[in-house]
Nucleic acid binder design. Structure first.
Lengths: 188, 188
DNA sequence: ACGGTGATGTCACAAGGCGACATGCCCCTC
DNA sequence: GAGGGGCATGTCGCCTTGTGACATCACCGT
């Protein structure tokens, strides 16, 4: 029953998000999610590889923006990656603090979700590093610049999401990048 | 049958490693592993939280060595973490290249295992950062130094494991650390 | 020999995930 | 406007993961 539901993917993702918040990730079954969206369990699995994937819906977009920004800039590799994340901060995250906090608290509640988030970050990193390599950088340099940039983002993001924070994500990224430079510069 | 098998944990881990290599991780069921070790599926789950955990047996040791090294050194935070990884490289990895390569090729074959490895790294990172904080460093500095150090290790490790490499892991770590400094030092 | 303790085996079961097939909807064509 | 192809969805059944509850058996001290 209820065939042809428009935007099945979006409705499933939304249903999943709601249920994860209401009962927690582990207490929610895929059948529950499908039921709330008015669809079948099997349909869920055709649209998402996984129960966890329902929480990582918009992620592809992020990778696209990052790769584009990194590719088009002329700055040094590390600066390029940091700048790309600042762009992402403004374009994608800036006006979604509350949503991001809810999402993050769901993720924090489940080891499975943490693993998945880590993998998403990892594949993002790989994509950015590939973009840098495509510009002629060595594999090692590309990997280092990318991972360092991601580290900066990760730390800034953690501070941004923290309950008592009020600075903008882009500003935090700049701050953290500056501190990274300080820490790694002194050889003694 | 076959009660009181000595070193059940070790035998299960060994059986798992063999089977993962013979048939691949996904084609191996927990029942298979237990059977090869002469034990029951239920016993496996009492000794390992997970099918994946069987591949990450010795990991606790690594964390202990790292935390101890980081705590005892007097150098700057980033240097401390890098030095700790160099120690680990000599004490734990140096004479196990072939084993590490086999393990890595198993991990590369399964997304689930990659996620688990990422999480192991992440909890390792958290432990090291906590050790730095215990020495009086700010949360941000501790996180940055640790993550940068881990990045250096990660990149060096990837090169060490690569089929055509022959440098020692400790040397690679030093090389990569130097390059990280170069990349992050130039502000323009 | 006796009872206790801890490790193991047995059974049953919920949930994740997937292959195969059935069914209904929509649109295109003649 | 009837027929048919194609696509999204539903149904069914299956294997595997992971866990709770309970039965056993070995070993140990006494």
């Amino acid at each position: 029953m209820a065939r042809w539901q428009p935007d099945a993917r979006g409705r499933l993702a939304a249903a999943a998000f709601e249920l994860f918040r209401e009962r927690g990730f582990e207490q929610t079954t895929v059948t529950d999610i499908a039921a709330r969206a008015g669809l079948d369990k099997r349909t869920f699995y055709r649209l998402f590889g996984d129960k966890r994937e329902a929480l990582f819906s918009g992620g592809e977009q992020l990778e696209a923006v990052l790769v584009k920004a990194v590719t088009e800039t002329g700055a040094g590799p590390f600066e390029a990656v940091v700048a790309a994340f600042r762009l992402v901060a403004d374009e994608i995250f800036a006006d979604r603090l509350e949503l991001v906090r809810m999402r993050q608290s769901i993720i924090a509640s489940s080891a499975e979700l943490q693993e998945r988030e880590l993998r998403k970050m990892s594949s993002l990193t790989a994509a950015v590093a590939a973009a840098l390599r495509a510009k002629g950088l060595s594999a090692t340099t590309a990997a280092l610049a990318t991972e360092s940039g991601v580290t900066v983002f990760r730390v800034a993001y953690a501070r941004w999401v923290a309950p008592d924070s009020d600075a903008s994500l882009a500003d935090l990224i700049a701050e953290v990048a500056a501190e990274l430079r300080t820490i790694t510069s002194a050889p003694g």
